[in-house]
Amino acid sequence: MVLAMTICRWMPHGRRSTITMSGGDTWMRPSTWKSSSSTTLDRPSDSAQYLLAESHFEMDEYIISASEYEKLISQYPRSPLVEEGEYKLGLSFYELSPKYQKEQVYTDKAVEMFQLFIEDFPNSMLVSEAEERILELRTKLAKKEFQAGRLYHRMGEYKAARLYYQSVLDNYYDSEFAEESQLLKADSWSDEKEWAEAQAAYQGYLIRYPDSDRVDYINRQIEYVKKRHQEQLAKEAEGERGGVFRLFDPKDE
Rank of each mutant, 00 (worst) to 15 (best):
2 V>M: 06
2 V>E: 00
7 I>L: 14
10 W>F: 14
14 G>Q: 06
18 T>Y: 14
21 M>L: 15
27 W>Q: 14
28 M>L: 15
31 S>E: 04
34 K>Q: 08
37 S>T: 10
37 S>Q: 04
39 T>P: 00
40 T>G: 10
51 L>F: 06
52 L>H: 13
53 A>D: 05
54 E>F: 07
64 I>C: 04
64 I>N: 08
65 S>H: 11
66 A>P: 04
67 S>Y: 13
69 Y>Q: 06
71 K>M: 11
72 L>C: 09
73 I>Q: 03
75 Q>G: 01
75 Q>C: 05
80 P>S: 14
86 E>P: 01
86 E>G: 02
88 K>F: 11
92 S>Y: 05
94 Y>F: 15
97 S>A: 14
97 S>M: 06
100 Y>I: 01
102 K>A: 09
105 V>I: 11
106 Y>N: 13
112 E>S: 12
114 F>R: 05
116 L>H: 03
117 F>W: 08
118 I>W: 07
123 N>Y: 12
124 S>F: 04
126 L>F: 08
126 L>G: 01
126 L>S: 08
127 V>N: 01
130 A>K: 03
136 E>H: 12
136 E>P: 00
137 L>A: 10
138 R>Y: 03
139 T>C: 04
139 T>G: 15
140 K>W: 05
141 L>N: 02
142 A>M: 06
144 K>H: 07
147 Q>S: 06
151 L>E: 03
152 Y>K: 15
155 M>S: 07
159 K>G: 00
160 A>G: 00
164 Y>V: 01
167 S>T: 12
168 V>G: 03
169 L>M: 13
169 L>W: 04
170 D>T: 04
174 D>I: 00
175 S>Y: 03
176 E>Y: 03
180 E>P: 09
181 S>P: 05
182 Q>V: 07
186 A>Y: 14
188 S>M: 13
189 W>Q: 10
191 D>I: 07
192 E>D: 15
193 K>G: 02
193 K>L: 10
201 A>D: 09
203 Q>W: 01
209 Y>P: 01
209 Y>D: 03
210 P>K: 14
211 D>V: 01
211 D>P: 00
213 D>S: 14
215 V>I: 12
221 Q>M: 14
222 I>K: 03
230 Q>K: 15
236 E>D: 05
238 E>M: 13
240 E>V: 06
242 G>N: 11
250 P>S: 12
251 K>C: 04
251 K>S: 09
251 K>H: 06
252 D>T: 09
253 E>Y: 13
